[in-house]
Every structure is written in C-alpha cells, then in structure tokens.
Design a protein around this nucleic acid. Sequence first.
RNA 1: GGCCCCUUCGUCUAGUGGUUAGGACACCGGCCUUUCACGCCGGCAACGCGGGUUCGAGCCCCGCAGGGGUCACCA
Length: 519
Amino acid sequence: MLVRTRFAPSPTGYLHIGGVRTALFNWLFARQHGGQFLLRVDDTDQERNVEAALAPILAGFRWLGLDWDEGPEVGGPYPPYYQSQRSAKYQAGVDQLLASGAAYRDFATTDEIQAEREAAQQSGQQFTYSRRRMATTDVEAAKFVAEGRQAVVRLMMPRAGELVINDLIRGQVVFPWAGEQDHVVQRADGTCLYHLASVVDDHDMQISHVIRAEEHLSNTPRQIFIAQQLGYPLPQYAHLPYVAEPGSKNKLSKRKLDKYLKNKDFAQLKEHGERVAQRMGWEVNSEVFNPVIVDFYEHIGFLPDAILNYLLLLGWSLDDKTEEFTREEMIRDFSLERVNKAPASFDPQKLMAFQDRAMQKLPLKQKVARVLPFLQTAGLVSTPPPCDTGPYLSQIVEAAGDRIKIGGDILDYTDFFVPDSELPYDEKTLDKRLRNAPGARELLSDFRERLATIENFDAATLEHVLKEFVDQRGIKISDLVHAVRVTVTGKPVGFGLFETMAILGRECCLSRIDIALAK
RNA sequence: GGCCCCUUCGUCUAGUGGUUAGGACACCGGCCUUUCACGCCGGCAACGCGGGUUCGAGCCCCGCAGGGGUCACCA
C-alpha cells in the first residue's frame, strides 16, 4: 500500500513544538515507507492573512528540514491544499450525506439546542438531541423557513451499537454510538466544519495513515461515520500521546507561558534565549519568543537535528540505550508500534543536552558557520565578513570548545570583537582582583613588562612564562591569573587564559592591561 | 458529570512470568583544574493501591485511586 501522511496546520502564525513532533512522526513514517508527506492548511475558520500566518509555519518546517511532497508552495496532484478553497468538494459531500439520509437539515436555533442540553444536564441525563426541528422533506423545511428559521446540516448519528477502532498505537478502542452527538457539518451560511472537511480531504488526497495527537481520538467516531456514509475506505489511525508541560501531565500549550516560567528549567531556557536576543539588540516579545514555539530555537542557534532527535525520543524509543539518531537512522528505525501511550513531559534540560551533544560533534568549520551570523546580527562583524574573520573566529570557537552550546552563545565572548577602549569591565571582579588585591597592580605591571618582551606570543610560551614568573616570586598561579584574565577580557570567567591571550595578540593584551591599570 | 485514554527513578524511557528492575537527562559527592565549561569516578532514585491467576508477577485478569483528553454552528 502506498503510504501517504499529512500534517494539517492551522495558520496561527507560529509552529508549536508539540505540533512539530506530530509532524515529525508523520514525516518519518512516510519517508520510511517511500510514501508522501503532505501539508494541508486547515483554514476553514480563518478570515484573511492566511499567507502571513502560514509563513512562519512553513519557515519552521524548512528550517527543520521536514520537507513536504505536496502542499502550499509546492502544489501536487490534489490541489488546492487550502481548505478554504475546497468548499465545492465539501458541498458535494454534504449533498451526498443529505441524499442518503446520513445527515439532515436542522432548523433548531442555538438557544433551543442549548436549552435541551442544559435540561439534560440538570436531570443528570446524557444529552441527545430530540431532532425536533429536523426537516426530512422540503415541505417540512418550507414550514420552518416560513417561521424565519435557518438550517444547519447535522449528522444523523447512530444511537445504538458501538464502534470499534483499531488504532495503530492504542490498539482496540470501543465507543458506544449512543455517546455521540448529531454534530453540525455545515453552517447556515454554507461553510463546512472541520470534521467533514478533514474526512473529505483525507480521502481526496488519498491519505493512508492519519497520525495525529491523542486529543483527536474522541473525534474519531464521527469522522469514521462520515467516511463510512460517504463510502470511503477508512485510513489507518494512530493517535499519539500529546506533549505535556514540563513537570506535569497537562497538555503543552502556548497560552500558558506564565505558568511554565514557574518551572525552573523552562525559565532557564527562556532566559538563555533572551540573553542571546538582547545581545543582538532585539526587542523580545514573549508572545513569540517562547520555548514552546519553534522560532525561538531557530533564532538563538539551536541545531534542527538536535531538536528532532530530542522530539523523536519524546514518546518513542528504539531500545534501552540508543539515543542518538541521524536523519537516516530515524527514518530507518522509526515505528508506530514503539510509540508510547502515555503523555511525555517536555524537558528543557534534556533538550539542551541533545543540543550540546550535537553542537560538539560538529566539525569546527560548521560550528564557525553556525556562530558567525550571530556576530553579524549583533554588529560585531560586518557582512560580508572581512577575510581574516574566518581564521580568527576559528581560533576562538576552537578555544571555546564545548562552552558554546547554541549558536548565540558566541555572544558571551564579545570581548574578542570590541576595540580595547570599549571593552566593558566587570567592576566587581576588577575590585576583587585588582583594586582591592594587595600588590596586584605592581604584580600586573611587572608581568606586563615581561609580556612585552616575549618572543613567541603563543599559548604554550605564555603558560611557560607565567609559571616561571610566579615561581620566581614564590606566589601561586592564581595570584596572578585572575587579575590578568579580568584585565584582558573584562570578565571573571572565560576559556583558557593562555589561548585567549594568544588569540588576542600581544598588542591587544598590553593595551588592555594598560587601560585596566589606569582604572 | 458522561465517554475515552493513560499510570516503571524528579524527567524521558528499557522491560512482554523467574532481572541485583537497565540506560539517558537532572541531582548529590569526589577527582581534574588559573576561572568557567567539559571530562573521569562514585552515589541517590521507580514498578500508584488492593485483590486475584501462578511454584513465581513490573509484565496476565478484576477492582479502586490518581492523572489526562474530549464532550462547539474551534481546529
């Protein structure tokens, strides 16, 4: 069988991390089976600006490398891929449902329905619509119209028996038909609702596997009813557990940012991102700049592979130890059978661990390429970069080692890029290591003179010279190192001091020491 | 509330009747060390509860509890 899966985003303006996982599983399944993965825009309820609201979502997919075979911008054999443009197909479905008696025109007002619902609730009964305003003939319909009523189209749902769904993840799930409502499939204005549209589209587009989040499980009976009544063969269903909030089992949603920020790890991740954003001079809008949204990761320099790898393991595993997967391995090893049933909480720390691992595995050249755009955005390196930037940056990135976990972390080391006169100093550290440390100035001043005469200004020589220098004076390395560090970098922490100095060069180091001594 | 789903360390998970219940992240200790970040070594830590079935149950059955999803003329 040809495998065709789909992801159907609503044009909301952002791509949710939970949605990405659903999309990833669909994509992997299709790729594994040599099938197609498509994108279909669920904009039945959207007014305008669909393109604008869709752009960030498509951009997110592109960034992650989740390519779609059919859908917006790429087209395909079953266009259009926007639900708002497929109303004729839905109308045909509604007509067929009506003609076969699987649906009926209902003239009840929303108030009337609401009253019935409340009455049922009060008497402790399950609500079942009385179908009092159902019109099965044109004569009945005309009578209701004469009363000034308008019709919606409702499903004539079965009220006895049960439906057995064989879900690829959850196994057999049984629903009593009596629990289902006569759902509306078409509004009085002729527009159709999601369930009808979704079923019609999935059939038209030859979707073989509907892989979606668990919250759709209870929608499935009505969709199966529609499909059956329309004479469609049923797709296979697979309901994934949803992605839960950090430290809880509630579904992760974009709206509850404030609540998540009370979670230490989540807040830490957001702060990490904000630090990068601030250094690039961005106004941070927490609506958008938010670890629940994929853009966040792109903007601060996460690796798409790391995110995908993390998401893959959120609800799926191959065995008891394999954690790292390349794209090819993911495609090869993924299986719906091994998807978990229980919801999995989003763990920012573990995501970061995957990111760190992926980043450290990158060849130096690629790491440099990942980091450079952040320096350019921050205005520290021009675009295009001067030709000596490559070698210089390479030295820095190499010396930084695993301190750079995300691309934006390079902005923790701006001291390599600012002119000596503009180097900001951490005042507290300057106090501690230079101003208030007895004899520090003299020591530093002496060391400066020694530095001026070093023949090779490289890390090995610097280390040797400094050690010799402190030995001669009978002092500890730490008595001098900290003062030198704050002097040449402005900061209390950084990477290897000798590497740092070698990269900065003699002229720069001497100049910075002079500036600091004058403070 | 009805219906449906779920339940192994704090978190992600392995486990399909006999295991010292394994791994990863986090956490805690130690080592390394000029700071930071790594790295290395060690440690803490779980089968929701109650009944069955069985020689034997994390694995099978029943009940309970807890958590969650869903009950729209939203998607």
